[in-house]
Write a protein that binds this DNA or RNA. Sequence first.
DNA 1: CGATACATGTAAGAAGTTACATGATTGT
DNA 2: ACAATCATGTAACTTCTTACATGTATCG
Lengths: 188, 188
Amino acid sequence: MKVRDISLLGHALLGLLQQHPSSGYDLRKIFALTPVGSFSDSPGAIYPALHRLEEGGFIRGRLEETSGLRRRKMFRLTPAGVAALKKWLAKPVHRDEVVRSMDELMLRFAFMDVVIGEAASIQFLNTLERELKLYVPTLREYLGSQRANLPISGRLALESGIRGYEAQLQWAKSARAAYEQAGKGGTS
Amino acid sequence: MKVRDISLLGHALLGLLQQHPSSGYDLRKIFALTPVGSFSDSPGAIYPALHRLEEGGFIRGRLEETSGLRRRKMFRLTPAGVAALKKWLAKPVHRDEVVRSMDELMLRFAFMDVVIGEAASIQFLNTLERELKLYVPTLREYLGSQRANLPISGRLALESGIRGYEAQLQWAKSARAAYEQAGKGGTS
DNA sequence: CGATACATGTAAGAAGTTACATGATTGT
DNA sequence: ACAATCATGTAACTTCTTACATGTATCG
């Protein structure tokens, strides 16, 4: 049970297992059938990742005996797993992640409010918004300065990226509004 | 010089080398300083990738002697490299790529018109548009059916994904318009 | 009784990350 | 002289992909 880093897939598994204790097969189906990130549902990715998490002491699997079904190993988080999940979710949004791994940021957000609270989610949205407001203009500047040097498709591809970030920015605003709205009538 | 598959990074390098013959260091700087995909600029990724491409016969490096500078190995595409690049760019847009690797699709698009022509780019945009028009409603349906089961942040994260795809769809339309506009006055 | 879905795994290989290593050239 | 930048590389490690392997339960 030595200290191990947890991969992105590992963190996704922690997040899902926090929602429901599940078997490897359950998790594979989630990746195969629902739009949770873009993880492979191949057994060669998921079972080894679960074993690493278990070896690291973050989850614990036990064989289900209750029903007369096939043997299924149900995994659930240990306290160390909950702590690792919280640590991942609580990481401040860094500029670099906005540029290079928006996917991971959105995955974190998807698990966030349940695990570390709405206040953290709102804080996350604020930081994301701030970083996007800083980043988009630098992309626009680059596009402006290179307009003459780029082939049409290169320019358009860059446009596409910029529009994607702008959509994220709009989304962040509306998501924050949704929390404020819910906050008025919601529980706590 | 045996047959090798080319990784995404490898294809990106082929695309960039087709624009200008470059050294490994040049390419690293492109990844470090410009918004071309989200590739690492680490030497441990780029130099081995260049060596694999060279070993596969797709590029050819030669030491620069002309100027009194440090030794730089300048790489350029071989005919096999051009063929491999064209093959990658000409692949039809598959549904699965829209779902799991939009990044790669946009990278391909960025190199496309110069290497295989505007007609191919327009065709690409049409197919992309069609696939997005099919995919977005399935995401909306999923969101509708799961609305009650998802935590707020889960629902919002899914919203973010949907908005991203919608932005892509809008972009594809405007990009097509840009080609049609350019076509009227442009060369050929 | 054969096909399909359930359920878990391993082995080989490819490719990326991090960190280290080396050396030339330029600027101060 | 010394630091910074230019320029290329390797080694160890981690993780993912692809393909194979195994066996059970259910359905028609």
